[in-house]
Design a protein around this nucleic acid. Structure first.
Length: 109
DNA sequence: ATGTTGACATTGA
DNA sequence: TTCAATGCCAACA
Protein backbone atom coordinates (compact mmCIF):
# COMPACT_ATOMS: atom_id res chain seq x y z
CA UNK A 1 0.00 0.00 0.00
CA UNK A 2 1.88 3.02 -1.24
CA UNK A 3 0.49 5.98 0.63
CA UNK A 4 1.78 5.11 4.01
CA UNK A 5 1.73 8.00 6.39
CA UNK A 6 4.36 9.10 8.85
CA UNK A 7 2.46 7.47 11.65
CA UNK A 8 2.76 4.15 9.83
CA UNK A 9 6.50 4.39 9.93
CA UNK A 10 6.36 4.55 13.68
CA UNK A 11 4.41 1.34 13.52
CA UNK A 12 7.21 -0.48 11.77
CA UNK A 13 9.00 -1.33 14.98
CA UNK A 14 5.69 -2.07 16.62
CA UNK A 15 4.80 -4.50 13.86
CA UNK A 16 8.13 -6.20 14.22
CA UNK A 17 7.67 -6.47 17.97
CA UNK A 18 4.15 -7.77 17.47
CA UNK A 19 5.37 -10.59 15.28
CA UNK A 20 8.31 -11.40 17.51
CA UNK A 21 5.96 -11.62 20.46
CA UNK A 22 4.01 -14.31 18.65
CA UNK A 23 6.94 -16.63 18.13
CA UNK A 24 6.06 -19.84 19.99
CA UNK A 25 8.40 -21.13 22.66
CA UNK A 26 10.95 -23.49 21.22
CA UNK A 27 10.68 -21.93 17.76
CA UNK A 28 12.63 -19.29 15.88
CA UNK A 29 12.11 -17.10 12.86
CA UNK A 30 14.33 -15.05 10.61
CA UNK A 31 14.75 -11.36 9.94
CA UNK A 32 13.71 -11.84 6.35
CA UNK A 33 10.48 -13.61 7.20
CA UNK A 34 9.49 -10.88 9.59
CA UNK A 35 10.35 -8.17 7.09
CA UNK A 36 8.51 -9.99 4.33
CA UNK A 37 5.47 -10.41 6.52
CA UNK A 38 5.44 -6.65 7.07
CA UNK A 39 5.51 -6.05 3.33
CA UNK A 40 9.13 -4.87 3.25
CA UNK A 41 10.98 -7.93 2.10
CA UNK A 42 14.34 -6.19 2.03
CA UNK A 43 14.03 -4.42 5.32
CA UNK A 44 15.62 -7.26 7.23
CA UNK A 45 18.27 -4.88 8.49
CA UNK A 46 15.67 -2.64 9.99
CA UNK A 47 14.22 -5.65 11.76
CA UNK A 48 17.61 -6.04 13.36
CA UNK A 49 17.38 -2.45 14.52
CA UNK A 50 14.00 -3.17 16.03
CA UNK A 51 15.54 -6.05 17.93
CA UNK A 52 18.29 -3.89 19.26
CA UNK A 53 15.70 -1.36 20.32
CA UNK A 54 13.72 -4.17 21.94
CA UNK A 55 16.40 -4.94 24.47
CA UNK A 56 15.02 -4.34 27.90
CA UNK A 57 11.54 -5.36 26.84
CA UNK A 58 9.93 -8.74 27.38
CA UNK A 59 10.19 -9.61 23.71
CA UNK A 60 11.81 -12.96 22.91
CA UNK A 61 14.35 -11.38 20.59
CA UNK A 62 16.57 -14.42 21.10
CA UNK A 63 14.15 -16.30 18.84
CA UNK A 64 15.10 -14.18 15.86
CA UNK A 65 18.05 -15.39 13.82
CA UNK A 66 19.41 -14.75 10.37
CA UNK A 67 18.45 -16.87 7.40
CA UNK A 68 21.29 -19.33 8.09
CA UNK A 69 20.06 -19.92 11.60
CA UNK A 70 23.13 -18.21 12.99
CA UNK A 71 22.74 -16.16 16.16
CA UNK A 72 23.78 -12.89 14.63
CA UNK A 73 22.75 -10.82 17.61
CA UNK A 74 24.19 -12.98 20.35
CA UNK A 75 26.73 -10.31 21.20
CA UNK A 76 23.96 -7.88 22.04
CA UNK A 77 22.71 -10.12 24.83
CA UNK A 78 25.64 -9.30 27.04
CA UNK A 79 27.56 -12.44 26.19
CA UNK A 80 28.14 -14.82 23.29
CA UNK A 81 26.49 -17.76 25.03
CA UNK A 82 23.41 -16.11 26.55
CA UNK A 83 21.27 -16.33 23.43
CA UNK A 84 22.23 -19.90 22.71
CA UNK A 85 21.56 -20.86 26.29
CA UNK A 86 18.10 -19.31 26.22
CA UNK A 87 17.21 -21.17 23.06
CA UNK A 88 18.57 -24.47 24.35
CA UNK A 89 16.51 -24.06 27.49
CA UNK A 90 13.45 -23.83 25.26
CA UNK A 91 14.26 -27.05 23.49
CA UNK A 92 15.87 -25.58 20.41
CA UNK A 93 18.62 -27.69 18.93
CA UNK A 94 21.78 -26.53 17.20
CA UNK A 95 23.87 -28.07 14.49
CA UNK A 96 27.61 -28.50 14.66
CA UNK A 97 28.12 -25.00 13.29
CA UNK A 98 26.31 -23.48 16.23
CA UNK A 99 23.33 -22.58 14.06
CA UNK A 100 19.70 -23.27 14.92
CA UNK A 101 18.22 -26.27 13.16
CA UNK A 102 15.76 -24.33 11.04
CA UNK A 103 14.37 -27.51 9.55
CA UNK A 104 13.02 -28.35 12.98
CA UNK A 105 12.42 -25.00 14.62
CA UNK A 106 11.64 -22.47 11.92
CA UNK A 107 8.40 -20.62 12.57
CA UNK A 108 6.83 -18.45 9.90
CA UNK A 109 4.30 -15.72 10.78
C1' DA B 1 20.94 18.59 6.38
C1' DT B 2 23.92 14.85 4.49
C1' DG B 3 26.49 10.58 4.70
C1' DT B 4 27.73 6.30 7.13
C1' DT B 5 26.66 2.19 9.72
C1' DG B 6 24.07 -1.76 11.12
C1' DA B 7 21.52 -8.36 15.14
C1' DC B 8 20.08 -8.83 6.82
C1' DA B 9 18.25 -10.46 2.31
C1' DT B 10 17.54 -10.39 -2.60
C1' DT B 11 18.89 -9.67 -7.19
C1' DG B 12 21.84 -9.27 -11.28
C1' DA B 13 26.24 -10.14 -13.69
C1' DT C 1 28.23 -21.34 -9.37
C1' DT C 2 30.18 -17.08 -6.60
C1' DC C 3 30.72 -12.08 -6.04
C1' DA C 4 29.20 -7.24 -6.12
C1' DA C 5 25.59 -4.08 -5.96
C1' DT C 6 21.12 -2.59 -4.31
C1' DG C 7 17.19 -2.06 -1.13
C1' DC C 8 15.10 -1.26 3.25
C1' DC C 9 14.53 1.83 7.71
C1' DA C 10 16.32 4.01 11.77
C1' DA C 11 20.17 5.99 14.60
C1' DC C 12 24.35 8.47 14.88
C1' DA C 13 28.41 11.63 13.65
Amino acid sequence: MPGRSEADRDDFFDRVWEVVGRIPRGKVTTYGHIAGHLGARRAARTVGWAMKAAKGTSLPCHRVVNRFGALSGKMQFGGPHIMEDLLRSEGVTFDEDGCVDLEEHLWVP
